[in-house]
Amino acid sequence: MRDRRISVALLLPSLVGIILFLIFPVVQLVLPVIFGVKSNETYFSFLKATYNQQIIFRTIGIAFVTTLGLLVLAFPFAFWIAHQRVKVRKLLSLVILFPMLTNAVVRNFAWILILGRNGLVNTLLMDLHIVNQPVRILYTNTAIVIGLIYLFFPVMVTMLIDSIVSLDQSIDEAAAMSGAGPLTRFFKITLPQLTTSLLTGSILVFAGAMTAYTTPQLLGGNSSLVLSTLLYQQSMTLGDWRAASIVALTLILIALASLSITKVITKRISGGNEV
């Protein structure tokens, strides 16, 4: 009994903190949307508005392209790093960690310098006489996608490196002994073992891209709103709390859905390892 009281005393501060200051406020936020007066009507009328639909589709589209781009770009890079000597690999991991720990404003500002009207890309294009007028890249969906890929690239790469490194080398050797060539081995032996990490990594990045704020704010601006920037605009600029709450609920649902999918995948494939 005394033992139990001690356990409770140790757990209680964190538990109360999170319930009181996170779960309670969030529930308070979404309950009126779900159970309030004419809640269904408001929610569906929000979804029906063409403007909002555009934003939802844009958000999904951007996250989808970002994820796809990351899969294509990060996998070979991770593969390259994973096959370096341990010392080099550790050094490269540090190099990758640096942007990951650098302020998102800084990272996005770098892309403003590159993609802006007088930025690096436009300067190069005009100097080479490929275009006469600066091309508009900043404040487009493309800019957001580029920024998000840059933002999540290190995350995706580190995740993949770990699972590639932990692959059992002897399986590949056994396949080689049975006469499988390098390409066959890659597609029939290596890749199938990495499906879980590729899938969970993709879902993680997808959810992150759906809910990220700083990148779409700086590289998309008001001309290319996504759900998170819409949430801020509705609440703080326009003062429409109701609409903001609806957006918030949508974002929560997206996050929880991706979490559940990830859980199901990892449970099924790796036999219950927590993610």
Binding site: F21, L22, F24, P25, V26, Q28, L29, T211, Y213, S228, L231, Y232, S235, W241, A244, A248, L251, I252, I254, A255, L256, L259
Partner: peptide, 14 residues
């Protein structure tokens, strides 16, 4: 699990 932007909004509101 909850998007940071939502946490910010929720804390501000309540």
């Amino acid at each position: 699990l909850i998007p940071e932007i939502v946490i910010g909004f929720a804390l501000f509101q309540s």
